[in-house]
Nucleic acid binder design. Structure first.
Lengths: 219, 219
DNA sequence: CCGCTTCAGTAATCGCGATTACCGAGGCGG
DNA sequence: CCGCCTCGGTAATCGCGATTACTGAAGCGG
């Protein structure tokens, strides 16, 4: 159902390892704390490392030349990111920014690659996470190409809702997730409100009619 | 540079295996021939299998409710596809269609998963291919959100060009890769032609000014 | 060589969403 | 309690790309 609710969607990357193995992992990683707003990497800064979000929240996004932001992914605890530089050779035109005070573990690429051959479990989990990521990116692409803003907003709300309520998201946040203007997002939200599908409060949206909202979101 | 020029971008999935291992692989896979136009799977048909394109060409695409087509990927020999159902649990709202008479090897999910744990090399290659795929999907998303049609056409031509020439692509094909109308694609192409950046012939486009084309494509 | 099908060129209209320009309200820090 | 900053509401204009409607040229099959 939801894409990022449980980190990368799977169990912790190191789940099932013995205490000893975990100590070994400790030895070769470093843990740092970041404050909300801190930027972990920007395009060009090929950190050559895998990051593990232990606590907090991180946003992966791209910027248009004119400064519009498109959020690719919102990461929750137990997600990892930055692996691209370790695995493909490809660099990434992305930014990673801490959106809530976070604790992040950094693992060297070299170490990761050693793990990958030695621990098929780990490779497997990364593979699964990648799969979800491809799916997510392609779904977002399809939505962008095929649907209008109200539908995309509706879909986002449904994906993001916990218990029929979406909290902590500003209109600006919603706009950035869709890559549109804040005004456009506000309009779409008001449109949905007028249809009695949602109710809007400051940083809080309640879903009133899940069924019809799904309708609008395009099934 | 190019995304699909060399299959999934890596060596053959089974490269480096011993003759014996290859015979083993033979035993657990089946090979079939498909004619241009054949549809290998559609949404819902969870084939539960990994496909390997040995010869020919395959297109992965999605359809809008109104029937517009968005091509996610063009696959060349040595690419694999359909793994999503084996790895993530997620099904795919995608179609796979043969665009040139093809020879395709089918491997059971179960077999694949056994390979994944036993042969880190294989897992590694799939991981790399997935990485490229994530990158590609996110790039396409960014382009769609941030750039206009001329820029996206220019970028597509640059990606697709072999030796400064793009052959075999109709305007319709180009439109489908971008998820836009054929007329819109034609317009953009003519615009580029007017600027003397390309020359257009039936199913053939020549790149005249790579530098300025890159400019327009957005660096 | 004829007819049909595939491809490509053009034009006109229309609506959505970008873009610009403000205003007003809620909260927070001091 | 005041001022500032974050959030959210509105409106008007504009341009791009969707959508509709044809025309015409280039191959191909017979």
């Amino acid at each position: 159902m939801s894409t990022r609710a449980d980190g990368n969607g799977g169990p912790d990357l190191f789940q099932g390892m013995t205490a000893e193995e975990l100590r070994e992992v400790e030895r070769v990683t470093s843990t740092r704390n970041f404050r909300r707003g801190a930027v972990i990497y920007t395009p060009g800064e090929t950190g050559e490392a895998l990051f593990l979000l232990r606590e907090g929240a991180v946003q992966i996004y791209r910027m248009s030349p004119e400064g519009r932001k498109l959020v690719i992914a919102h990461l929750l605890p137990h997600s990892f990111f930055g692996e691209m530089t370790c695995i493909g050779q490809g660099m990434y035109d992305t930014f990673a920014e801490v959106t809530e005070d976070s604790t992040i573990v950094t693992m060297n690429c070299e170490v990761l690659n050693r793990l990958l051959v030695g621990k098929p479990e780990i490779a497997r989990r990364i593979l699964e996470a990648f799969g979800r990521r491809v799916l997510e990116a392609e779904r977002q692409l399809e939505d962008t190409v095929f649907k209008g803003i109200p539908a995309r907003v509706a879909a986002l709300l449904l994906r993001e809702a916990r218990n029929d309520s979406v909290d902590g998201l500003t209109h600006q946040d919603i706009a950035e997730r869709l890559g549109v203007y804040r005004e456009t997002a506000t309009n779409a939200l008001n449109e949905l409100k007028s249809a009695n599908l949602i109710s809007i409060g400051r940083k809080h949206i309640a879903i009133l009619d899940r069924a019809r909202l799904s309708q609008i979101a395009g099934e």
